[in-house]
Design a protein around this nucleic acid. Structure first.
Lengths: 215, 215
DNA sequence: ACATGTTTAAAACAACTGTTTGAAATTAAC
DNA sequence: GTTAATTTCAAACAGTTGTTTTAAACATGT
């Protein structure tokens, strides 16, 4: 249902407006009146179509997530036939570009960032659907790059080091925009940033492998 | 004024309660009534002592920041007499431990994370006071590690890669707690995480230097 | 055309929220 | 002890908010 708009123009407009306003303002600050004004429907529509503000939020979140994953599929990162290094590079490219998407779709990232920062009951679903698969993929890939003999916690630390670099540009966007906006100022710069993260990460992982081999 | 409590018990209790409730709930969701209940003062006190909710927020933020920096001074990271590598390690240690502080002081990090995610007029002040000095310090240190010839943007990307790794454990704490809580489950694990981030980052920077030297 | 179901709308409702008000209580100064 | 200043309080205020209510308007089916 929430993965594609049904033939219901009012409901659709409401859902799209909700994604945007919830992303901008968060759940609490977003008002039903503002969302309805943006969607050009009456305030009663929220209860009519979604049963209330909370359910609207849950559906907006699920919808945004689904749209984002369709536009930015993991693709090569999931291809077992490719070397681990290429899979990691592919992941970083997709992930960062998804985070940096500033079209209407970009609201999804803000919505998820808010959910992560202030979890509602929806977070567990998001983790299962969107985040755990990424971690699982990275958990396949990282041992191939860093070599055997690392604890599970160390593998996770490597994963978090990579993911954390990408999320920096989304979660702390306000800081990046004030201190060094050039690093993500254009598509070329975003590509350079993705390249940098890939290089930085591969270098680190490679070094950890060598270091472990020598001990 | 806001860097140390004045001799005014009601005002102090109010400020401390505000730090906590604003950290937990954010500005909008935190109510004056809840803060005053926690502080055991009357709701009119907010206007009496601080002139209103917004000013209370601004002072709570400034106070929390000041307290955090006093407890976690940059110390060795600022010591020009130490090698760059050691300075970077010191920075990562201090920064991560500050972020992972789960005493009452830990509210500061949540407050700042919220401000970064949803900037108010206070953000610029915070950047000047707390974030820009860190970036300036790292901007001194990184070129010594990565070698000459890198663009300013590349230096910033390195800085963001390091800071982003640390912030992962704070900004995405809800995810870490659900997927791999062990990595920061105890003081020892936090130390291991700080060591990991330092190793990961130094390895990457070292590799970038070698790579640039060979081209 | 009529009956039924769905959608839309405006108004009302009940609760919440930061702020103000006026006065009592407390403290400080002489 | 008296006066003045400060602090605290409960109630009121004005605005906001999600939800409900009721009925009109619209769409569908026969």
């Amino acid at each position: 249902m929430s993965d594609s708009p049904c033939n219901d123009p009012s409901r659709d407009r409401l859902l799209l407006a909700a994604v945007e306003i919830f992303a901008e303002r968060g759940f609490r600050d977003a008002t039903v009146r503002e969302i309805c004004a943006k969607a050009e429907v009456n305030a009663a529509s929220v209860n009519y179509y979604f049963g209330g503000k909370e359910k609207l939020y849950a559906e907006a979140l699920a919808f945004a997530l689904c749209q984002a994953n369709q536009r930015y599929p993991l693709g090569d990162a999931l291809n077992l036939g490719l070397p681990a290094e290429q899979r990691l590079i592919a992941f970083i490219q997709v992930f960062l570009h998804k985070l940096m998407d500033n079209t209407a779709l970009g609201h999804h990232g803000k919505l998820i960032a808010r959910e992560i920062a202030d979890p509602t009951s929806a977070l567990d679903g998001i983790i299962n659907t969107a985040i755990a698969p990424q971690f699982a993929m990275l958990k396949e890939v990282i041992p191939s790059l860093v070599g055997p003999g690392w604890s599970e916690s160390d593998i996770y630390r490597c994963i978090l080091s990579i993911v954390g670099q990408c999320l920096m540009y989304k979660h702390s966007r306000s800081v990046v925009d004030r201190i060094c906006p050039n690093v993500i100022a254009s598509p070329d710069e975003i590509n350079s940033t993705a390249d940098h993260i890939a290089k930085f990460s591969l270098a680190a992982l490679n070094h950890l492998r060598i270091e472990r081999t020598q001990t």
